[in-house]
Design a binder for these strands. Structure first.
Length: 876
RNA sequence: GGGUACAUAGCUCAGUGGUAGAGCGCCGCCCUUACAAGGCGGAUGUCGGCGGUUCGAACCCGUCUGUACCCACCA
């Protein structure tokens, strides 16, 4: 369809026939988004009187592009903020991006490599300039994708972690932490990536089980010898001791003595240390303080020298035959040399053990002794834990809190310095006489000969930790900070609970005088494929959300994601499901089209209940229940249940029943038709508004056409009017059951759906007389005389449908069906009778349960009577 | 080694004590004048195994098996 994409209607039910019979997302999505932005709907006013509702975007890496995980997260955030906006809050969805230190630097370095140059050739300043240029050129990818998705973010407030203001925030907090003694410099064993050439923090290390080889090596000679085992043989060059457990009888005689270290001319002491597990291996451990975190600690306890034998590239520096070899080459060379000396006591054997890899490039991490900057996290983490413990911050779903506590309660100090060029440079200067000066944002750095600035930059997460307030202008005391801090909710994946969430908590509480950065943390899961498998490029199941948005529309992608979003649980998504969501959008489209063709309207007040048919009252009663239900689900971040409830209400109840039943009313005309037109308008109006946060585009297009309103984006959020009509609901339940039963009967008899059948419809004492015309229409029943062939199974007491099947009835099939029904009813009767004969049950079960069982028994009895009668009437 | 989840229809998942549900898929009949991206009807499960508590268990308790993820300085 290419026609009919003109601007939205300028009045209620204008030109309904203009709507094409199929919804084409591409025709409306782009233009609607641009209109929303032009009209400033997404902008936030910090001076507004309205209550604030603020959510920050988890800033995507500038290097990145939108993947389904983003699409998912954005759908949830967008839905939350759109609803709050409709509810009359001053909403801020804060957009922005993260400079992603290592990732971005790696990316640009790869480009340079292709050009045959390197960052070292360029020099620091030129390189950083180059990264900025790269950011300017390709950093906008995500913004474009966010527009496609419909993200209602405040574009004028877009921020970047390296912006001047945010850098000032970083500097401010660094200075403050430093002066408070919470940032310090120390030489320790850190995780070193020999490819990225930088330190990385503990949580940037990904452990996986790798196949290694455990070799056993004899140290020393004769009685003065023992055997140690290792998977990193090359580190023996840096051994400065062997450790055994203090209580280990086997080695007691050796403690305090020195033994010869093979391949070297050194001898090393045997020390006793409780860290050694005497049960493991030989019970003797080689100690390499400069290349292993445990050994570092042992070395500290025993005053051992720290002998560095590898450089930053993990190349051996120890003088001798191994010098210049890479760690892996050195490993086999060392083992070979040891074997020649007869030092290998057990052949090397395969050994699976946990090995750390750089989370950015997957290179095996090398523990390395070096001087770095650290954050003393204990006091900060304590506060972060307490804020959740005492309920000031709620984690949703609450099962996730245990993970959070596990981390904040057992935290090691955080290594924040990175040996990179792209990032916030550490604001510390070193003087000629060993002075160290931390320079705050309003201070001049020291000048003069010999003063140099620290060459390292800060961990990316240092600046992300300030995101909830740095984006609002902090450290200035801006109105935005006052209005939107703390944020209302943080919506993010459980996978960055530690990387990001916990650190925002620590820094937020610290910087903002103990006020945590948000009231609620709503954690979602990871997007997976339709079989629940992790999406990854290497596995070949990764999907570009743009492909699906192109094919099925953004609404379809959003709705599918929302529909799978159970709190904290991973979300599978498959193309078939997106297609189904597209079908839903199309269904809404066509239902609205039908409504417009039939004169549905939102003008004027709703007619009085007395004027309405039971069908009208039923649908309005259900509508209001659904409004209440939707509110409860939104408030509880239950997107899957929310989507499901709206889907089924709209499709099953409104489209399949109310719309179908109303056809008869419309055809008859008169006042009842007028009333139904207004009711149908109301139902669609409210339903579209309820759905808008999830599927903004199609609802906007339809709602503006239906109501003539400016935009559903700024329409009022529906309120439960309190209208309920239990009697009408029961009545329509009966109608629906009855119609379904007759349809089943017809299908069983092989009647074609469209085939008209002479029939009498005797609704007896059911009180459903008013529905007879509609039911006859739905069932394709023609008026009939005396003819009688069979009766349908009737779930509503007192109703009889006599269908004249003109001799075409299949008596055998009917007998079979009735017999089956009879058996089921008899089983039901037996079950309920047994239950009601159970004294213990009657004594202990609540009244409503007992009553329910009674009703079931009565129904079973009635069924048996009726079916028996019908069976008797069937010709043999 | 510690921790947290999870095992329900072919697939992906809801369902926290009272007759087993949804979407997709599947079978059958229909282009019934909003929609075939649709309509109507239908089939499909000893709710992982074994015990226990209870009048009653998918649900609570114990245990076993299997899976996923997180944390941890196991040479």
């Amino acid at each position: 369809m290419t026609e009919n994409t003109q601007p939205p209607a300028n009045g209620p039910h204008s030109a309904p026939a203009d709507l094409p019979t199929q919804y084409t997302p591409a025709d409306v999505e782009g233009k609607l988004y641009e209109r929303w932005v032009e009209r400033g709907y997404f902008e936030a006013d910090e001076k507004s009187e309205k209550d604030p509702y603020a959510i920050v975007i988890p800033p995507p890496n500038v290097t990145g592009s939108l993947h389904l995980g983003h699409a998912f997260e954005h759908t949830l955030i967008d839905a939350l903020t759109r609803r709050k906006r409709m509810q009359g809050y001053e909403t801020l969805w804060q957009p922005g991006m993260d400079h992603a230190g290592i990732a971005t630097q790696n990316r640009v370095e790869r480009e340079l490599a292709k050009e045959g140059t390197s960052r070292h050739d360029l020099g620091r300043e030129a390189f950083v300039e180059r990264v900025w240029r790269w950011k300017a050129e390709s950093g906008g990818t995500i913004s474009g994708q966010m527009r496609r998705l419909g993200d209602g973010v405040a574009w004028s407030r877009e921020r970047f972690t390296m912006d001047e203001g945010l850098s000032r925030a970083v500097n401010t907090i660094f200075k403050r932490l430093h002066d408070d003694g919470l940032i310090y410099r120390a030489e320790r064993i850190i995780n070193w990536c020999p490819r990225c050439l930088t330190a990385i923090s503990d949580i940037e290390v990904e452990y996986q089980d790798d196949d290694g080889e455990l070799v056993s090596i004899r140290y020393g000679d004769g009685e003065d010898s023992l055997v140690v085992a290792t998977t990193r043989a090359e580190t023996m060059l840096g051994d400065t001791a062997v450790a055994v457990h203090p209580d280990d009888e086997r080695y007691r005689h050796l403690v305090g003595r020195r033994i010869d270290l093979p391949l070297t001319d050194r001898s090393i002491p045997v020390v006793a240390d409780a860290h050694v597990d005497p049960e493991f291996g030989t019970g003797a451990v080689k100690v390499t303080p400069a290349h292993d975190p445990n050994d570092f600690e042992i070395g500290r306890r025993h005053g051992l020298p720290q002998l560095t034998v590898m450089d930053e590239h993990a190349v051996i520096t120890a003088p001798g035959p191994f010098q210049g070899l890479d760690r892996l080459e050195a490993r086999s060379a060392v083992v070979g040399a040891l074997r020649e000396e007869g030092r290998i006591v057990a052949e090397k054997r395969p050994y699976q053990h946990s090995v750390g890899h750089c989370s950015r490039c997957h290179t095996t991490v090398e523990p390395r002794l070096s001087m770095q900057w650290w954050v003393r996290v204990a006091p900060l983490a304590k506060a972060a834990g307490d804020a959740v413990r005492d309920g000031r911050v709620a984690i949703h779903p609450k099962e996730m809190s245990s993970r959070y506590f596990e981390w904040v309660d057992n935290l090691h100090d955080w290594c924040i310095s990175r040996q990179l060029w792209w990032g916030h440079r550490i604001p510390v200067w070193y003087g000629p006489d060993g002075e160290v000066r931390c320079v705050g944002p309003d201070e001049e750095p020291p000048t003069g000969p010999g003063w140099t600035q620290d060459t390292d930059v800060l961990d990316t997460w240092f600046s992300s930790a300030l995101w909830p307030f740095s984006t609002l202008g902090w450290p200035e005391r801006t109105d935005s900070v006052a209005k939107f801090y703390p944020n209302s909710v943080l919506v993010t994946g459980y996978d960055i609970l530690f990387f990001w969430v916990a650190r925002m908590m620590m820094f937020g509480l610290y910087a903002m005088d103990g006020v945590p950065p948000f009231h609620t943390i709503a954690l979602h899961g990871m997007v997976r494929d339709q079989f629940g498998k992790k999406m990854s490029k290497s596995f070949g199941n990764a999907v570009d959300p743009l492909d699906w948005m192109d094919a099925y529309g953004s609404d379809a992608v959003r709705f599918t994601l929302a529909r799978g979003a159970n709190p904290g649980v991973d979300v599978p998504i498959g193309e078939d499901w997106v297609q189904a969501s597209r079908n839903f959008a199309n269904k809404i489209w066509n239902a609205t089209r039908f409504a417009l063709l039939n004169g549905a309207t939102v003008e004027g007040p709703l007619p009085a209940a007395e004027e309405m048919s039971a069908t009208d009252r039923w649908v309005l009663s259900r509508l209001n229940s659904v409004v209440a239900e939707a509110d409860a689900y939104y408030d509880d971040y239950q997107f899957a249940k929310l989507s499901d409830a709206l889907f089924h209400f709209a499709w099953d109840e409104v489209f399949d029943w109310y719309v179908e039943l109303s056809k008869t009313t419309f055809a008859a005309g008169g006042r009842p038709a007028e009333v139904s037109r207004r009711v149908l308008g109301e139902v669609l109006d409210v339903t579209l508004r309820l759905l808008h946060p999830l599927i903004p585009f199609v609802t906007e297009e339809l709602w503006t056409t239906l109501t003539g309103g400016d935009s559903v984006v700024v329409a009022d959020w529906p309120k439960d009017s309190g209208f309920r009509d239990a009697a009408a609901e029961r009545e329509l339940d009966a109608v629906r059951q009855l119609v379904t039963e007759v349809r089943r009967f017809r299908a069983d008899q092989g009647l074609q759906p469209g085939q008209r059948v002479p029939a009498t419809l005797d609704l007896g004492e059911t009180g459903l007389a008013a529905h007879e015309p509609a039911m006859r229409a739905l069932l394709r029943l023609e008026p009939a005389g005396e003819a009688f062939s069979a009766t349908a199974t009737l779930p509503v007491a007192g109703a009889v449908v006599a269908l004249d099947l003109s001799g075409a009835i299949d008596f055998a099939a009917e007998r079979k069906r009735l017999t089956k029904d009879l058996a089921a009813a008899e089983k039901e009767l037996a079950q309920t009778t047994a239950k009601l004969g159970n004294e213990a049950f009657l004594a202990k079960a609540p009244d409503h349960v007992v009553a329910k069982i009674r009703t079931r028994r009565e129904a079973a009895e009635a069924d048996i009577a009726r079916i028996t009668e019908q069976l008797a009437k069937l010709p043999a």
